[in-house]
Design a protein around this nucleic acid. Structure first.
Lengths: 212, 212
DNA sequence: TAGATTGTTAATCGATTAACAATC
DNA sequence: TAGATTGTTAATCGATTAACAATC
């Protein structure tokens, strides 16, 4: 199974923001919402919203827009957020704890079955209802829970070592919050969440706006 | 002053990963590093690395590569990471605490002068050496410190309100970790760090690899 | 009905990749 | 010198935007 590049990655990245708007409309008992309205809220072009929504398979109605309930379901289905996935949290520091606490992620199917850390003070405690296990029981717990997703928030210098172990234990998707590029087999997908690159962009925007 | 879209944003985002590699080479007393080598480490195309580095103004030497010391300086200067910026942290929860603790950010010029929270249990304590102030002293402290950057990690429902206040107090750059699109004046730059969109991409990659 | 909105097809724009001369 | 690497110019690729017919 070859490693793919996701086509339309920018579109996929925008879907959650659409989902949020649509959910609000749904809660307000709006039967339909138009791409135009979504675009206004997010300061995007309506044509971009229509194109993005098309990849979910949703069909809208001229003049009215998209049925809010159906659209919510279509986005959730397309993203795979309509089923829960057993997940493990590797590294129970501040960042890991923050992520475990995001109720939003649970709504998107993330079910954190176990957390791991090598700090004896943390082992045996729970963070947001998740029990923290010693790192050396990682293989056993991943097999026991059948988790396929790992959230990786260990210190960067241990990132590759941790990745190797969790992949060997059966993990096939890694949400990587370290600043290291991971080497993994072809069948494993990695999403690198790179805070530093975001700050680089902010830094350049500041300079640009000042200088120009 | 009009709001710009950064051209070459993908290139800017990749610069920090180059910087990391180059710093390692520098520490290993390598005088030169070639774009080819950087590309190999990061699994990119050499031509992409050369094009990206060109925006920093660095000039390499055929056959040898780029002088490591000069290249480090060029990237840091281009990103504005060679000067420190007073910064305030709005929201001292788990995520804010994690960000305050990243020594890496300090090396890139982030100097967190004050943190803010409305939890009485946190006010008066320090997180990673930063004193936590009550939220209602925000205006006073921003003016006192002269901070121009804010890291926004408040609960999403308070994001816009907090943004309005910090902008009024003189902040001109917001690193936004909430999931809300902020409305700000033209002279204020915002970098939205959207964890949910990253997870959307991971989710689709998982589905794609399975189904195809 | 008239007009707003969808969805498709075409055009534009920007980023990535290729080709290759210059050069140390 | 020969060969690896840079930097520039051109080609390709993919994403965004524009135009517009279909339609409820």
């Amino acid at each position: 199974m070859a490693k793919h590049k996701i086509t339309a990655a920018p579109s996929v990245r925008r879907l959650p923001s659409y989902l949020y708007i649509v959910q609000q409309a749904y809660k307000n008992n709006q039967e339909y919402i138009s791409g135009t309205v979504i675009a206004q809220e997010l300061k995007l072009e309506p044509i971009q919203v229509r194109k993005d929504l098309a990849i979910t398979g949703i069909v809208g109605r001229p003049k009215k827009g998209y049925p809010t309930g159906e659209l919510m379901n279509a986005i959730n289905r397309f993203l795979g957020w309509d089923t829960t996935h057993k997940t493990v949290l590797i590294g129970a520091g501040n960042l890991g704890t923050a992520l475990a606490g995001y109720q939003e992620f649970r709504l998107h199917g993330i079910d954190i079955a176990a957390a791991f850390d090598n700090d004896p003070g943390k082992i045996g405690t729970t963070i947001h209802g998740v029990l923290v296990h010693p790192l050396d029981t990682l293989e056993k717990q991943i097999k026991r829970t059948g988790a396929k997703i790992a959230i990786l928030t260990v210190p960067s210098e241990h990132a590759q070592e941790a990745a190797d172990r969790i992949v060997a234990a059966g993990i096939s998707a890694i949400w990587n919050f370290t600043n290291r590029k991971l080497s993994v087999p072809d069948h494993v997908v990695v999403q690198k969440e790179d805070l530093t690159s975001g700050f680089a962009l902010l830094s350049v925007m500041m300079r640009f706006d000042r200088d120009e």
